[in-house]
């Protein structure tokens, strides 16, 4: 596998641009909700304390984020996303195009105090890291952006896994059934299938928790070992897209996988291809990290009276 960061960055850009383009097109398609009588009415959202501060700020935000200008931002974002792979391929202006994408992401988050999901957060992380990498303009900064994306990806799975393992709501046997049984995130044929099959529900529930907790092992599994974890991730997000309608999650999370492959290859090289040693070291490291995280969660819960 190559150790040059360029092909990995290009793969990330391809996946992330495609996914974010679909997501942006969905926004443009549902632009009626951005009007003053819609769910994202700036008349309502713009009444937040943040946006009604100094007159200059409120006027500027109104000019930027009310219906017409914001639809303009979405169209500009779409063009920037479609242009990004070409800018990167030809090596011209990718930092400027990424800056446009990042600014539009920030505007979307500011415009929407609700309705944004985990895939939007991951897109912001990916494009933000790629922008900083391109801004640095050196092989070292490109590598740092890849390490950042791989780190965020592993952190997301680990956090989700530990939070589920810690939660008593997930300790019952039917958490997955209960989610798939809802109209909001479920699918009636799947709920019907799982209704009288508690064993399958239990396997799905704990399978998801265990795989999310252990996903970070992909970093120390080397190549092609890491593909086992990534294949699970692809299947997991594909299932979530079909059953739960979370189509953007597929693109945003799978877009981080080239960064994980890069880091796995680099870690394997650093250990002189001693794959088994990496595995053992990784298992111990993950065990320790998990133990520390568990203790820290307990500590944070005691201090704040909340659970993540």
């Amino acid at each position: 596998m190559p150790t040059d960061p360029s092909p990995y960055i290009f793969s990330i850009v391809l996946f992330a641009s495609l996914g974010a383009s679909i997501s942006t097109l969905e926004w443009i398609h549902g632009r009626r909700q951005l009007k003053d009588d819609g769910l994202f009415s700036w008349e309502v959202i713009g009444s937040r304390s943040l946006t009604v501060g100094p007159r200059l700020l409120s006027t500027s935000l109104y000019r930027l984020l009310s219906f017409r200008p914001f639809v303009g931002i979405l169209i500009l974002r779409l063009f920037a996303l479609l242009l990004l792979p070409f800018a990167l391929w030809f090596g011209h202006g990718s930092a400027v195009v990424l800056a446009l994408v990042v600014c539009s992401s920030l505007a979307m988050h500011l415009r929407s105090p609700w309705g944004m999901d985990g895939s939007d957060q991951m897109f912001t992380q990916i494009f933000g890291a790629l922008f900083l990498g391109q801004l640095g303009g050196s092989p070292l900064s490109y590598k740092a952006s890849l390490w950042y994306i791989a780190g965020q990806s592993c952190l997301s799975y680990l956090t989700a896994g530990i939070a589920k393992a810690e939660s008593h709501h997930w300790h019952g046997t039917n958490a997955v059934f209960a989610v798939f049984n809802t109209r909001t995130y479920g699918y009636e044929p799947v709920a019907r299938f799982l209704l009288h099959r508690p064993d399958i529900t239990r396997i799905l529930t704990w399978g998801a928790v265990i795989m999310e907790c252990s996903f970070s092992l992909a970093l120390v599994a080397g190549f092609p070992g890491c593909l086992i974890f990534l294949a699970w991730g692809v299947a997991f997000h594909l299932m979530n897209a079909v059953v739960m309608g979370l189509n953007s999650f597929f693109w945003s999370f799978v877009a981080t996988y080239p960064a994980i492959i890069y880091c796995a290859v680099m870690i394997e090289r650093a250990h002189g291809n001693r794959g088994s040693a990496s595995w053992v070291a990784g298992v111990i490291l993950l065990f320790l990290l998990g133990f520390c995280a568990r203790r820290l969660y307990g500590f944070a819960r005691k201090r704040n009276g909340t659970v993540v």
């Binding site: 957060q121 933000g128 799975y157 989700a160 589920k164 810690e166 709501h169 997930w170 209960a178 909001t184």
Partner: peptide
């Protein structure tokens, strides 16, 4: 701007 992510999807309480 949601620069700090929240990764605890569907936890502690699944929807």
């Amino acid at each position: 701007f949601s620069l700090i992510p929240n990764w605890s999807f569907f936890a502690p309480r699944p929807g």
